[in-house]
């Protein structure tokens, strides 16, 4: 086991409990999503009963899944619905790996909600020269059988604090996890504000707008703010980046929970800016979509590759 400080600070000895009760002090200093995933600090864990453990980063299972539908969300984004042969446990906003073949795979965030949707849903953006996205756009058909991994990642909704305000910032297909987290939170009866800012370069990159406006119409605590970084404000779409717009409208983020997904530069900048605006470091969850290669072989907590 990798380890360093041995006093429960550095988190380099993280493990995951598959079964059994984890002593409370083995989870001190962890974020709510890490606790929900059953992660604990091996160096601080003195079990009082048998527990079954796994390496924190292990992606254990691969399953077959049937493609049940492919829908057009915009010119270069498709929703792919998948029906796994055996159900997989997941939380909206986590991601899974989709295999084109034994050696070629990409991570995609889950936009579906376990308690609302029968099928898994991912959003795939077409990348120029993208091996997997090109295959999905050109060759994948409903009815096809594909291999996927179990879901992993730390960027998801944790119930239990229904009055906390939530800020969600995303660019491009970073909307997928945020769409899942939003619907998950509202389904759980979240009462605090839920503010979603989705940014794209141009209006053609914004998608699911209608569905999100419908959700906003029926949930007064939910606010949907689409924005474009190139072009003027028009038809309820603001001009600017999601980060700038959010900080202008919500300058004080003390007590807020923050989710950041999509472009890695945006995610890095937003992590610092939302922290400086008052969000606690343990309440900021991020899923940067790194280019393929940067994340290859990277374990849990690794970002979803978009290509």
């Amino acid at each position: 086991m990798p380890n360093s400080c041995r006093v429960g600070v550095c988190q380099s000895c993280l493990m995951r409990a598959v079964r059994g009760a984890i002593p409370g002090n083995a989870q001190t200093g962890m974020t709510p999503t890490m606790i929900a995933r059953g992660l604990f600090l091996a160096c601080q864990c003195f079990p009082t009963e048998d527990i079954e453990v796994a390496l924190a980063d292990e992606v254990i299972r691969r399953v077959e899944a049937r493609v049940s539908a492919i829908e057009r969300l915009s010119d270069d984004v498709r929703a792919v619905r998948l029906r796994p042969s055996t159900p997989i446990e997941y939380r909206s906003g986590q991601f899974l790996r989709l295999f084109k073949d034994a050696r070629t795979s990409r991570n995609y965030s889950l936009a579906s909600v376990p308690s609302l949707d029968e099928e898994l849903m991912i959003h795939v953006r077409r990348f120029p020269g993208g091996l997997v996205s090109g295959w999905i756009f050109e060759h994948l058909e409903p009815g096809a059988l594909v291999t996927i991994s179990e879901a992993f990642g730390d960027c998801f909704y944790v119930p239990g604090n229904p009055d906390q305000n939530i800020l969600l910032l995303g660019t491009g297909c970073g909307l997928a996890p945020l769409y899942g987290i939003t619907r998950d939170a509202l389904h759980f009866g979240h009462r605090g504000r839920v503010c979603l800012y989705h940014g794209s370069r141009e209006t053609s990159g914004l998608y699911l707008s209608e569905g999100l406006r419908e959700i906003a119409a029926t949930h007064p605590n939910f606010q949907y703010r689409p924005c474009v970084s190139e072009g003027p404000s028009i038809d309820g779409i603001s001009s600017g980046t999601p980060l700038d717009l959010a900080l202008k409208e919500i300058p004080d983020l003390t007590g807020w929970r923050v989710y950041l997904c999509g472009n890695p530069q945006m995610v890095d900048a937003a992590r610092v800016e939302t922290f400086l605006a008052g969000a606690a470091s343990s309440e900021i969850f991020a899923d940067p979509f790194l280019p393929t290669g940067a994340s290859s072989g990277a374990p849990t907590g690794a970002p979803s590759a978009p290509a």
Binding site: C5, C10, D268, S281
Partner: peptide, 17 residues
């Protein structure tokens, strides 16, 4: 500038301890 904030927060914590 440009440091990983999550890792940095853990380091700050170790330093404070």
């Amino acid at each position: 500038k440009g440091v990983d904030m999550t890792q940095q927060a853990a380091k700050q914590k170790a330093f404070l301890t």
